[in-house]
Nucleic acid binder design. Structure first.
Lengths: 254, 254
DNA sequence: ACCTGAACACCGTTCAAGT
DNA sequence: ACCTGAACACCGTTCAAGT
């Protein structure tokens, strides 16, 4: 906050927002002396387990406190409220994605594709968390670390910096949108595609001719194949914007 | 439910799910005789206004009933519960997008681009609704009508049916992902991009060199421009998959 | 000093009592 | 027959009272 935004009251930044994360202490781990009754990491890990097992609607501070053998008031000694706990859940899920080997890949296309698939896998592992990714760019410590790694790898492969940033954003949006609609919490079964196809085919072909045609044609296309397809579109489109593909062993200016 | 899914209890389909919409009465408008104290459309319109004005967290059946001059119990005579009302909200927002002129466009590229921009505009008008698009494919009556129109237009321009379905899905996922992260309810200001850029630039360049480089390079890129960029990637990528572009007046085999 | 039971003002949902 | 006030079992959050 240097000088801009003069008349905004900005009473308190919303948990999960950039301004809020900016006020957090860094990635240091043990801020409290002695042994607090409850460990912050332990709280978040338990919360994630509860959401994974019983779904977000069943998650409450009371169930969390019960699982920890504590009371709800105790949670407020570690977090400002429920929203803050949820923001930490999002960042923890992002932290489960290992992108440390991204620099070893040989083309920027592989970097983007690997990043998309691993992010997608993390979201698939925690379908009930997906809605929490809505509504803001995840800029917690883990989210920042991942973003840094991907951008670094793209830049290392000669992708112009503006293109790298927009490519990261476009792929990220695609992955979140895909995971949300195909693996969201409302999907009781691990694979809703067959149900959706059945629903489309059951529609009246007279009123929905194109939908029913498409549904029949799409029978038995695995979800991961559809994911790969859309991702391939983005990568292919990006190749048109790069000075050279990055695959070519002979640099353009060597 | 013909024969499959033998051991699933499937007590009641979740509101908004395909199975749930399948049980809804069609788009007929006046199912009740006489004049009910509360009109269904009026309830949804009021609910949408409340969510738009005060945000989803502040929306409750009690505030809705108050705005209608009624009691919460009365709402249960029109809807099974809050989730059902929210599912109708999603479909109503989709209904605000006018796609009736899609057939007049001359290329499938224009069809996809127009569809994406109009869908995006609808979501921008109702940022608090965006999270509700998570977790399921919107298959309410309006959602189906839009899907039918777009698929029809794509097929009319010679796009193979399998490609049309996957193109629709990929673009839809991209739009939802973009709108969710850039215009979600947590974004108090109408344009969070400057805030995000400021946040990135304030980071320590030593620990986040790539992010800070990218943030500086991306200063003053309008959001709509970034949206257009990712959308262009998808359309460009799709052109590689089509037998002929549909723009070229001379067919590839004439 | 640190923790927390119990209360507060809500919430979605139900149902017996009203008309 | 239709509607709904009032209750039910929750929720996130707070704070005075405990140790």
């Amino acid at each position: 906050m240097t000088a801009a935004t003069p008349d905004t009251p900005e009473a308190a930044p919303a948990p999960g927002s950039p301004a809020w994360w900016a006020d957090r202490p860094g990635p240091r781990t043990a801020p409290r002396r002695g042994r607090p009754a409850l460990d912050t990491d332990h709280i978040i890990a338990t919360a994630l387990r509860l959401v994974d097992e019983h779904g977000a609607p069943a998650f409450s501070l009371r169930t969390l406190a019960d699982a920890l053998g504590s009371g709800t008031a105790t949670l407020y000694r570690h977090f400002a409220g429920k929203d803050e706990i949820l923001a930490h859940l999002v960042d923890r899920v992002l932290g489960e994605t290992d992108l440390s080997d991204l620099d070893a890949l040989t083309t920027w296309q592989e970097v983007l594709t690997a990043m998309a698939h691993r992010f997608y896998d993390a979201l698939r592992h925690h379908p009930h968390i997906v809605p929490l990714f809505m509504a803001q760019v995840p800029v917690g410590p883990n989210g920042l670390a991942q973003r840094e790694r991907v951008l670094h790898a793209l830049l290392a492969h000669g992708v112009p910096v503006g293109l790298a940033a927009r490519a990261f954003a476009a792929v990220g949006h695609y992955v979140i949108g895909f995971a949300a609609q195909q693996h969201g919490p409302a999907a009781a079964s691990p694979d809703t595609a067959p149900q959706l196809a059945a629903f489309y085919r059951q529609l009246d072909p007279a009123t929905y001719p194109a939908i029913t045609r498409a549904a029949t044609a799409l029978t038995s296309v695995p979800l991961v194949e559809e994911f790969r397809f859309g991702l391939g579109l983005l990568v292919t489109g990006l190749e048109r914007h790069t000075p050279h593909t990055g695959k070519d062993p002979a640099g353009s200016r060597a």
